[in-house]
Computed example of a mutant assay.
Amino acid sequence: MHFDTLALQATHQHDPTTGAVVPPIHLSTTFERNEANELPGNYLYARPNNPNREALERSLATLEGGATGIAFSSGQAAIMTLFQALRPGDHVVLAHDGFYGTTSLLEDVFHPWGLTYTRVDMTNIDAVRSSIHENTRIVWVETPSNPTLAIVDLLTIARIAHDGGALCVCDNTWATPALQRPLDLNCDIVMHSTTKYLSGHSDVIGGALIFKRNDTFTQRIRQLQSVSGAVPSPFDCWLVMRGIKTLGVRVRAQTITAQAVAEFLDGHPMIERVNYPGLANHPDRQLIKQQMNGPGAMLSIQVTGGAEEALTVLGRLRLFRRATSLGGVESLIEHRASVEGPLSTTPPNLLRISIGLEHAEDLIGDLAQALTPGR
């Protein structure tokens, strides 16, 4: 099936009681036993499992081509649970350029606990290979990366990880399964912040892990999900399921606009650099075609003149919303280094842009006036 059809089929639930097309929200925290003290369904208490959460997990596994999915209360909760499944003394390799929250978890929470990690340029294959040790358990990949949109060769990195006895985990939040399926490229686990494109409306926090195999490591993470209680509410799961129905349509429209915006900015005298996988002069154009169905709706720009000029441009914008996060229907922009803090490796003149569903000409006009010198 094409992705749009798959997204609708994966989120369709038949309600045998009413025949409702839209599934009900099961808010109950507990489930009653019958006279023989037996549970009529598979549900005991809402922390271990819930009908809405199970439906979301099945949908995510279908979209990513995985064996099973596990949903969490946030993307950070998903990442944290994955690292909790490791042991003190284990080692993680992750990208030098990537979501700062992943590095913060490793540095502030797990490094004192005994987990070690190495940050490396994932586009440098030799550097990745030399960073894997006997105790490396996870190679964490993010492509396109946050916030410079570096492109990582998933097939090659997965092979290197497996040769070293490690799992390859890919943060697929930016690409979404509409554009990229890392499990098809030999990755073992996919992570999503479902807060972003999967829900798509900036109104729910959530996360997920999707697994290529339902093995003992997967079961350990499911146990940690239940024991730690880092689970999404039934309504949050329902909202993400609703968002998935329009994921393909939204990402396709947002990508078309992002392409137009990136092409306008590329070569602008006020812009030092445009980071966007869809540009014709992108050095990894062939790799992008091999592992992605499109360049996506995220881009970043580096403003000529440094941080001060970048903040000036940011303050002049009228249509873009100056806010953290991404993947919603509204276009967002932020000065990323200001958000990330002391562990940030982001250039100080970089602005990260999430393209929404506004008309491309309106967004380009807003950027044009904001970039006009002496305005």
Rank of each mutant, 00 (worst) to 15 (best):
H2I: 14
F3D: 06
T5H: 14
T11F: 12
H12C: 06
D15N: 14
D15S: 14
G19S: 14
V22S: 10
P24K: 07
H26C: 08
L27D: 07
S28V: 01
T29D: 11
F31I: 00
F31S: 00
N34Q: 01
E35V: 07
N37M: 00
L44W: 07
N49P: 02
P51T: 08
N52Y: 10
N52P: 01
L56T: 11
A61T: 03
G65D: 06
F72W: 07
S74P: 02
A77V: 10
M80E: 04
L82R: 07
F83R: 02
A85Q: 04
V93T: 04
H96A: 10
D97L: 11
G98Y: 05
Y100T: 03
G101A: 11
T103Q: 12
L106M: 15
G114Q: 04
T123V: 13
I125G: 01
A127I: 02
R129D: 07
E134T: 15
R137E: 03
P144S: 08
S145H: 02
P147W: 08
T156E: 15
T156D: 13
I157K: 02
R159V: 00
D163H: 08
G164W: 10
L167F: 09
C168P: 13
C170R: 01
D171W: 02
T173K: 04
A178D: 04
C187V: 13
V190N: 06
M191T: 03
T194W: 08
L198N: 03
L198F: 00
L209Y: 05
D215Q: 04
F217M: 06
F217C: 01
F217H: 13
S228T: 12
G229P: 05
V231S: 11
F235V: 09
D236T: 14
C237R: 03
L239Q: 15
M241A: 13
I244H: 06
T246N: 11
G248D: 15
R250C: 11
R252Y: 07
Q254C: 14
T257W: 03
T257I: 14
A258C: 05
A260C: 01
L265Y: 09
I271Y: 10
I271H: 04
E272C: 10
V274T: 14
Y276W: 05
P277L: 08
H282E: 05
P283K: 01
D284W: 05
R285I: 12
Q286V: 13
I288G: 08
M292W: 14
G294C: 12
P295R: 02
M298H: 10
I301S: 02
T304A: 13
G305T: 07
E309I: 09
V313C: 10
R316C: 08
L317Y: 08
L319S: 07
L319M: 02
R321Y: 13
S338D: 12
E340T: 12
I353K: 02
L357V: 09
E358S: 15
D362M: 10
I364S: 03
I364K: 11
G365S: 07
D366H: 06
D366W: 06
D366P: 09
T372Y: 13
T372M: 13
